[in-house]
Every structure is written in structure tokens, then in C-alpha cells.
Nucleic acid binder design. Structure first.
Lengths: 140, 140
DNA sequence: CCCTTTAGTTACTCCAAGGTAAGCTAATTA
DNA sequence: TAATTAGCTTACCTTGGAGTAACTAAAGGG
């Protein structure tokens, strides 16, 4: 994270440190509603390895985006939650997610992969598909 | 672009194809208000090489995000503009940019690098600094 | 005594995004 | 005749984000 050759002070490159990684948005998104244990995040994001998750959480913690709470127990229990600062990223991520979802549908419509009329989708999508999948985390 | 191992159908990874690259947001942002020639984009983004710009424009064109118009002339004249589809990314990018700008300021305030009271900034920033730098492209 | 559990760490590899530099075209200009 | 221009392409190299797998601690259960 935080590539060496970055234009200092560029808001784009700054923001990309937090949301440009393959799993960063997914991790933050799943933390949006509360506290999660390490394994809970991992299981919410199939394909995400322990190493990458640990790396990302360490980065977020160091940047004040995520808080870590360690319980003295064996086996270990560690909880992660967004800080107030971290919460500010959620509306940004929402926008990205909405675009991704909508554009994915458009692509399928043009491919003929999706056979539901686009007009129906436009009605449904924002009221049903998206809010549902946001709640369940499906597709993330 | 479009990494091989991508979870098919994941809206996050889909969106990151378009905004996750180091220069993608910058390129799209500078095209937001109209048509630009190849070199105009290049000069607007110091550090961006011709190869990377060409690669990105080719990707965007292929994906229907950007339109290319070639004029039969020597030396060549080529213009790029956002498609309607491409325009849908601008509000997303705006959100990212605003967050990046604000968070950058917060960082400086905490570092003591920035000596203007935060309360003053909150008033000014969204009405002056940001809209100005957006218009001039400063910091991109 | 060994297995399981959680939350990691360490060592290693890989690949593609990105950076660097040179070459190309063909008409115009000095 | 040589340089300049715009918009690329090609070849090459570097880097770091991400993937894989093995290893760890310490308590509790079978």
C-alpha cells in the first residue's frame, strides 16, 4: 500500500491508497455496520487470504480508519470496527458500489446475458437488488 | 487492466477496473468538461507517460467510456471525449476526490503541517479550494 | 497425547501495471 | 536537408500487491 512514487498532496492518489486495493473496499464495506472478528471478515470475502487481510487491517489501523480490540483469551479473539474517520469512507464506497452494480447490469444487457427488460430493472434494481445484496453482502 | 483473477460479477472489482488504476481517475476527470487532445491530457497530468495514457484510453474506448475522433491530418490530430456511459462515472469520481481532498487536509492538520483552523477550512474548503482546484485541475 | 481453534507471521513466488526510452509517419517549417 | 510536430507502438525493465503454504502460541476437548 502507499506506493513510493506518489504525487504528494494529490487527492486522487491519496484516496486510492484506501480504496484502490483489490480487497480494501470489501473489507471496509463489511465493517460498515459494526464490529467483526478477523475470521468473520475473511469468511465474508471468499478468496481473501489471511496475509492480505492482516496487511490491510494493519494499514487501516495505522491510518486511523479501523480500530482493533484484542481480548486476552485463548484461542485469540480480536475485533475490528471502523473509526469515525473510517465511517467517512462509507458514502464514497456506496457510490462506487452502486455504479459497479449498475454498469455490470448494463454490460449484461448489451451482451444479451441478461434477459430482463432494462426498464424493469431500473425500477427494481435500486429498490430491491442493490439494497438486498448490500445487506447480505452478496457479490462482495 | 482487468486483472485475470477477478471474481466474475463482483461490482467492487468491476468498478475498480475503471477507477483503480493510478491514472484512470485523473484522465476521466480532465475529460469531464469536454473534448481533449491526446497531448492535452498528457500535459494536464504531470508524470503520466504516453504509453500509459495510450493504454488507458484504449481500454476506456473499448469499454465504451471514451470516444475517439481521428482527424486526417499531419501531424495527427485526435480528440477524446466521454461517452454518455463515461459521464456516469463523474459523480462517483467527485465523491472520491472530495474525500481525498478533505482527508488530506485532516492529515495535515493532525501533522501540524497546516496551520489554518479546521473550522475555517470547513467553511472555505467546499466553496473555494475544492471547486477552484477542480476547475484548474490543480493537484491532479 | 494429539487435535482443534484463532489470529496471526514468515518466506517465497508471480504477474501485470507502470516507467523508460527509442522508433515511426509524413507534412510543414527553418 | 534537417528539425519539428502529434500520436502513437515496441521493447525492455522494475516493482510491489497479491497468492500460496507452512509455521506459531496456548488453552481446551477427546
Amino acid at each position: 500500500m502507499a506506493s513510493k512514487e506518489m504525487l504528494a498532496g494529490c487527492p486522487v492518489q491519496h484516496a486510492l491508497q484506501y480504496i484502490g486495493g483489490k480487497w480494501q473496499i470489501g473489507i471496509l464495506w463489511h465493517l460498515r455496520e459494526g464490529t467483526l472478528r478477523f475470521n468473520a471478515i475473511k469468511e465474508a470475502l471468499p478468496g481473501l487470504s489471511e496475509k492480505v487481510l492482516a496487511d490491510n487491517l494493519k494499514f487501516f489501523e495505522q491510518k486511523g480508519i479501523v480500530e482493533k480490540q484484542v481480548f486476552a483469551a485463548v484461542p485469540p479473539k480480536v475485533e475490528y470496527r471502523l473509526t469515525q474517520d473510517g465511517q467517512t469512507l462509507i458514502p464514497v464506497i456506496e457510490k462506487i458500489l452502486l455504479w459497479g452494480y449498475a454498469h455490470l447490469q448494463d454490460e449484461r444487457v448489451q451482451n444479451g446475458t441478461l434477459y430482463t427488460p432494462a426498464t424493469v430493472l431500473e425500477e427494481l434494481q435500486y429498490k430491491h437488488d442493490i439494497s438486498d445484496s448490500y445487506k447480505t453482502g452478496a457479490g462482495l
